[in-house]
Design a protein around this nucleic acid. Structure first.
Lengths: 253, 253
DNA sequence: GTTGCGATGTTAACATCCTAACATTTTCTG
DNA sequence: CAGAAAATGTTAGGATGTTAACATCGCAAC
């Protein structure tokens, strides 16, 4: 069948990234624009079709597209604000660890391209952002891919991480409970987060205020493991005071 | 200045991937569509603007965007064809190594999503493709990022690779010279390619025919290291015969 | 204040894209 | 080879995006 062949060609041309005008795609494939339209419509979702342009797959970072989109709409503004606060801890020339998740992407994108910062990460969505910045050095901890958080894990990566000195570790979490501790959804993240925390001079917890009083299956730290809490302004005064007394410095945007 | 703030918000919303309608962006930022247009136009290139939609940065895979684009135009059809040939060596359930470069992306995109294949890779542009496929297991070799080939390298990754059994290694090259050997542009790739070749049952060289008689700075193998040559149909008969005599099986699309 | 400038909003003419209906070509089948 | 079905091409009208010109607003300097 000819249609499949055309779709493969399109995919090849788009996988590497970038966009294609409908017009150019039609010429490339040697068919009319209408046929290209029909091809794309028939394999719904394989391509994103936006006003005269064809773009690669509609899923975003590393396959966790849909989950990410849902969650994004909910707290995106709070996450953005929390990361604005976290970004104030960035210093040129330093080495930082950036955790996985949907929150930390906002921090990654705030790293100035010319800051000579070294970023240590283990998630696709973070790597996709920082690898594009010319003046930023990137160390990726590899291993087996976990689609649920678009992250990698392996014993060798932990070994690599142990050999890296970190100025500031920016850790995210799925739940923060004042007495039970701090938790995330995926067990494979626990060792990585703990190692990053152990190797860091400064430890910053980056969360939006919806995470308080939540608990996820995998606990990885207590509150006193952190020096800073980077959060949006949804943090109420009573909690803020308790956390400060517990030794955490609150950082708001 | 307010414009900068709006642009930051846009960036945050788009970094994670995906697209935004102009209309939605205007609502999100609380300004008119016209203002959003002007913002985007003023910071030329930070966003891609396509027919009513705003997309993230225009650079593609892992920062080697421009180099990639230039090269892509040149040999894209040949590379696609070579990878069509290579894809015929894929078997469900197997473990394959996929090399870095602009050629192998076409192979990566041809891996069926439901094939239960395990992909071992060490480049951003490959990972970006295979991580999106639900039925594909991905092992990423991490390390320090090299923008020139969008790839990673580290001693620990080599260690990891040594522990992985590979059914078929798909290796790319920048130059193939019948007497001098096979070479690539980046020295850090050499050890990885050699280890992958050493650990693989079947070794396939995936190149387009423009690579013959070329030489790049880093040699990594001789021709007899490979079982298969996956190539486009630009391979002339005389060379094809010589290579066959040398023990290589030629695979065309 | 008011004057001027930059930023933002509004409108209208224009270009482009999208959809559906129909025409044509190709492919398959008996 | 005929006929049907699928694929592809063409056209036209409505919808949407684009651009430029002008109107309005807010702020800062004098």
């Amino acid at each position: 069948m000819r249609k499949a062949e055309r779709l493969n060609r399109l995919q090849s041309a788009l996988d590497a990234g970038g966009y294609l005008r409908l017009k150019d795609a039609a010429r490339l494939l040697g068919v009319s624009e209408m046929t290209v339209r029909r091809d794309i419509a028939s394999c719904g979702g394989r391509f994103a079709y936006l006003g005269g342009y064809i773009a690669g797959g509609l899923e975003s970072a590393g396959g966790m597209g849909y989950i990410l989109d849902r969650e994004r709409d909910a707290h995106i503004e709070m996450k953005r604000t929390a990361c604005e606060a976290a970004a104030s801890l960035l210093k040129p020339g330093e080495t930082v660890f950036i955790d996985c998740g949907t929150t930390t992407t906002h921090l990654a994108s705030r790293i100035p391209a010319d800051s000579q910062i070294t970023v240590v990460c283990y998630a696709m969505n973070i790597a996709e952002i920082v690898c594009k910045k010319p003046g930023v050095r990137v160390v990726m901890l590899g291993g087996l891919y976990h689609a649920s958080s678009a992250s990698f894990s392996s014993p060798e990566s932990l070994e690599m991480l142990r050999g890296i000195g970190i100025n500031t570790a920016f850790i995210s979490a799925g739940g923060v409970h004042e007495s039970l501790g701090i938790s995330c959804s995926n067990f494979h993240e626990v060792e990585i987060k703990q190692t990053a925390i152990a190797n860091a001079v400064t430890r910053a917890l980056v969360i939006d205020s919806s995470k308080f009083d939540q608990v996820k299956p995998a606990f990885f730290a207590k509150l006193d493991s952190f020096d800073f809490l980077c959060c949006d302004d949804g943090l109420d005064a009573a909690r803020s005071e308790r956390l400060t007394i517990a030794g955490m410095r609150i950082v708001l945007a």
